[in-house]
Computed example of a mutant assay.
Amino acid sequence: MPQVTGYAPGWPTWAELASPDVEASNAFYCGLFGWYAYTVTIPGLADYEIFTLGDVQGPAVGGMQALADDAQPASWTCYFRTENLRASVDTVVRMGGQELMPPTDISNLGRMALCSDPEGADFAFWLPGTLKGAGVADEPSTVCWVELACRDLEGARRFYGEVFGWRAVDRDYYSPYYTNFKVGDWSVAGMLSLDELWTPDYPAHWMPYFWVEDCDASTARAAELGARVRLPPTDIKPGRFAMMTDPAGARLALITPEPGDRAEIRTRP
């Protein structure tokens, strides 16, 4: 996919890791995906790591910050584009979610807010400044999908339909309860059920999928680097994928997508 210069409202734009050990996380992700990482100093906030493809001049693919509280778990946060940050946060609250971090300026990069849905799955809004979002997507070593795992599927459909204007379409991929969320004709995110295969106390969550050229080899490499594989490489209609937690416990998935034109695949009815 060509480099991305902007995102429409409702689209995932950025993925950000919160880590208890920035140096160790750099070693894991750069070792797994071949990323480069550099530090940005943001006045009034903690230092921020930017992951890129190739080197410091390469397109940005994601970010990382140190956990503010050691009691918090490591996690990836999925960011979604909005045109009106305050109105989006107000809709979250009106629909039963929570405002976890109010609209905040991130220097000249943009403006963000952190929220959670009614089941407690965290996500963030992004109103871009100089950082439009990931500079490239839908190619190896980049985020190519984001997915919500929850229990109240109908409630999530209503919530995210109001918040982002998403249209829900049923699929028969990995489980009989899989949903694609669409903006117009484009599939932008997915949702699966936390069914009996998950423990009753497993929390609802958003998770990024990273494109890899060989799911089996990349999963083995992740394990060598300290990841815990939760679901080994498995074939589904969209490709071959695996789920894992990184050495600090943050959830992520790897996928080698099915061959074909990405625009055609994303715009399937």
Score class of each variant (00 low, 15 high):
L153A: 11
R266V: 10
Q57M: 04
P128A: 07
T234D: 01
P128C: 08
G31K: 07
L32M: 07
S116P: 04
R240L: 04
E99N: 12
V89W: 09
Y79C: 05
N84K: 12
A222H: 04
R81K: 14
P238H: 02
R268H: 11
L148N: 10
F51E: 06
W14N: 10
T39R: 15
E83S: 14
M64P: 03
T199F: 06
Y177W: 11
W198K: 02
P9Y: 06
F123W: 14
T256W: 02
W198V: 11
V212P: 02
R157A: 07
G110A: 00
A263T: 08
C144W: 01
L225Y: 08
V188D: 01
G239N: 03
W35R: 10
V40I: 07
Y174E: 14
G161I: 06
R94G: 06
T52N: 11
P73M: 10
D170T: 12
S19N: 08
D201Q: 13
C215T: 13
P238W: 00
Q3E: 15
R151M: 09
D261P: 10
C115T: 14
Y173W: 15
C78I: 14
V188A: 02
S75G: 01
M64D: 08
E83C: 00
D216Q: 12
L197P: 00
L114V: 15
S75K: 11
I42M: 13
V61T: 07
F51I: 08
T104H: 04
F80K: 06
L131R: 05
S116H: 02
Y160F: 14
F28C: 11
T82C: 14
Y177A: 13
M1A: 15
T256Y: 01
V229M: 05
M95E: 15
P200S: 08
A66M: 10
W126C: 03
F164S: 05
T5M: 02
N26F: 02
E196G: 00
